[in-house]
Design a protein around this nucleic acid. Structure first.
Lengths: 233, 233
DNA sequence: AACCGGTGTAACGCGATTGTCACCTCAACA
DNA sequence: TGTTGAGGTGACAATCGCGTTACACCGGTT
């Protein structure tokens, strides 16, 4: 895979440097614009694979830039990763969905940012994983389209988070999922989420089918795994 | 599925390019005419699956082209997607209804245009799920031609929006519909429409049959779904 | 003008969901 | 068999999502 190009649009030199430093270290080619108004032109001839955009800039709203980018035929498909203030009202973040592919709330850890960026690039680049709508392991059946889960013929009522958690584990059938990995994919790797939260949700999942149904195994010191009866070593 | 053909009729090179770029990237085969008068001939031997037509052209009205196309036996059934100015008088937009399958108001986002075009092609091309104007789920009966809905033998009086909403959900029987998806297909993906509007309309739908008829299910944190009693593995 | 049906939006409130903590259990190991 | 730390469990407050109500607007009709 050739080197990925990332364009950072942010007027805070700190953030800009931080991104450049970390992503650069990870093998990305990073360019930076701290003048918001110049960002469009820059983007146009740089043709980045990803744009990291701060929506909290003093003069020109990142939101506006986003719209302009989206309206530009040559840039419309470039994924955008937003940097937002944590205090941002929830609905505003929702509101930027049409343009944004993901967002990271400030303050963020470099690690988080890098992970998210990589995740986006992976997703956009290769839709190789045909995550079929239907998954099945043993007597567990999960249908993403209807959002239904059936275990031993009994329908389970799962919340949104529980559903995502279970689906992730089923997609990686048999393999052990570390808490970190679960946090990264189910939650948006909000750095503020404790890893123990995963435990709680696993517990809630476990008790759904009623007692004495040990379908999610604990791998002590590592993580969790969906029990696959067929593999008995 | 073989490659879909799209014909763009517009005298503005900008728009033309934009469409070509995006749709082309999406795997469509796009041809373009910027001379309105030549469009009919072009259309006739190109035999496109979809025509995107600007009704705001200086010399020849897109409306006239539309009528001519409709009158041509070999093109009459080709769906037409109009590009209209946002400021367009309301009655004019209404006036083109008979010929148009959909329209997008300028300025539009590329994303919007592509989505609408795909939506049309999907609707026209893939009548895999009973194109028939009649849909039935459980004891709900919907007839697109007569524009009637009957639930448990009782006729429901639905407004236009309610009808479209219900039909979309019935077409996607069982599958969960996110608010975004509903907005996209029922409303004209006017980005200005709030997602909560969907809630309100779902509510209005719900109360039509009278109390205690939970036929539309809520999937918390995801969207809505028409109850389909059968749980099949 | 007054009215009215249809539609989109804002505000409020309640219950479900969720993240976190404190405490408990138990497996692993010496 | 005692120690230790990872993981289970129950409880709690904050938050979110959604139902619900009320209201403003817009076109069409009277």
């Amino acid at each position: 895979m050739e080197k990925k190009r990332i364009l950072v649009v942010d007027d805070e030199p700190d953030v800009t440097d931080l991104v450049a430093y970390h992503m650069g270290a990870k093998g990305f080619h990073v360019e930076t614009v701290n003048d918001a108004t110049a960002s469009i032109a820059k983007a146009r001839n740089y043709q980045p694979d990803l744009i990291i955009l701060d929506i909290m800039m003093p003069h020109l709203s990142g939101m506006q830039i986003c719209r302009i980018l989206r309206a530009d035929s040559r840039l419309a498909k470039v994924p955008i990763l937003f940097l937002t203030a944590k205090a941002e009202p929830h609905d505003r973040i929702e509101g930027l969905k049409p343009g944004a592919d993901d967002y990271v709330g400030k303050p963020f850890s470099p690690k988080e940012l890098v992970l998210r960026a990589e995740s986006i690039l992976r997703r956009v680049a290769g839709p190789k994983e045909s995550t079929s709508a239907r998954l099945r392991i043993g007597d567990i059946l999960l249908d993403s389209e209807t959002h239904r889960v059936i275990l031993r013929g009994v329908a389970l009522e799962l919340t949104a988070t529980e559903f995502k958690l279970l689906r992730l584990m089923m997609e990686r059938q048999g393999r052990v999922q570390t808490r970190e990995h679960l946090l990264l994919n189910v939650w948006n790797y909000s750095t503020e989420i404790e890893t123990r939260t995963v435990d709680t949700h696993v517990r809630r999942l476990r008790e759904k089918p009623g007692p004495e149904a040990r379908w999610i195994e604990t791998i002590r010191g590592v993580g969790y795994r969906i029990a696959d009866k067929k593999i008995s070593a």
